[in-house]
Simulated scan of single mutants.
Amino acid sequence: MSRTFTYFLLIFVMFIWGLNVVAIKFLVTELPPLVMQGARTFVAGVIATTVLFFLNDLRKLSKKEWLYVGVAAIFGQLGHHALLAIGLVQTTASNAGLILGLIPLATVIFTIIFFRERVTFLRMIGIFIGFAGVAIIVLQNDGLGAISRGDLFVFISMVSQAFSFIIIKKATTTISARQLTAVMLLIGSLSLLAISFFVEPQAVTHFATVPTLVWVVFFASAIIATGLGHILYNVAIQEIGAGETAIFNNLVPFFALIGSFMFLGETIVFLQIIGFLLIATGVILGTGYLELKLNKVKKQTIKETA
């Protein structure tokens, strides 16, 4: 697979992930959030597992590997998807998309904490700028006292997803990233469905009365965005590496902003644009991507002049 094709593949994944935030916002207005997310991720898990079965990329896991997968599923699927759905009931898709754009930076912070990764001044500046962007978004109305509960839930879901990536990084030393994703989707979805039966006992009856459009969005979100999207993203990581792949996540909030405006009629305000630019800048600096590129240019220059 050529590098150029991988880049186009990643842009497509970011496009469908950005629109997926809009899709989930639409779905939580039509269906109870927990059972909807549980059913949606279950379908995604079944699709992903089926694809991997035909690719012969499934094997028996050890007890230690099951432990890693279970913990990753709790934070990356159960925690992230449940809190995201609940949050989207109370906030806009545009705000949610922008907050989720902070995932690469939050992952870097956890990497620094758990793997003692080196922190440079430039990366610290990037982390500060990124979080300042989110602060502008969530405080855009009337300050600290007016922080939306929905924004708070989405923020916690973002942190939960970022923490799961640390577990995933540890687990993928022995497990295929694609198999890990598929198993996580199944475990997380079954956990979500189990909880929803207690929290939303009458929720299943809603599925019998929803219009056709809801089903179309539901299956498109499950199969294309969550199932296929995660598999393609993992393929890209194998081709160009996790660091360069993560930079493309900056496009998710951009596509979420455009999608929320076009399909949900949400208003895009100036402070959201400022927040997006700060988050994008923060990710480029905070993940060390800019430093990596500058070091490559410096080494190339030294090599040419030597």
Rank of each mutant, 00 (worst) to 15 (best):
T6Q: 14
F8M: 11
L9Y: 14
L9C: 11
F12P: 07
V21L: 09
V22Y: 04
T29P: 03
G38Y: 02
G38T: 08
T41R: 13
V43L: 10
A48E: 06
V51N: 08
N56R: 08
L58H: 00
K60I: 13
K63Q: 01
K64N: 14
Y68H: 07
V71D: 04
F75H: 07
Q77M: 13
A82V: 12
A85V: 08
I86D: 01
T91I: 07
A96V: 07
G97C: 05
P104K: 07
V108M: 00
I109E: 01
F110Y: 14
F114W: 12
R118H: 08
L122R: 14
F128E: 05
A132L: 15
I136A: 15
V138G: 04
V138S: 09
L144Y: 06
G145V: 11
G145D: 14
L152S: 15
F153S: 04
F155Q: 06
S157G: 05
V159N: 02
S160F: 07
I166S: 02
I168F: 06
I168L: 03
K169R: 15
T172W: 01
T173D: 02
T173K: 11
I175K: 04
S176R: 11
A182H: 13
L186F: 14
L192H: 08
F198K: 11
F198Q: 03
V210G: 06
F218I: 10
A220E: 10
S221I: 02
I223W: 06
A225P: 02
A225H: 05
T226R: 02
G227K: 12
Y233C: 11
A242D: 13
T245A: 10
I247L: 15
F248I: 01
N250T: 00
L251F: 15
F255Y: 15
A256C: 12
A256F: 10
T267I: 13
V269I: 07
L271R: 03
G275S: 12
F276T: 08
E291L: 06
K293R: 15
K296P: 09
K296D: 15
K296W: 12
K303P: 03
E304D: 09
T305V: 02
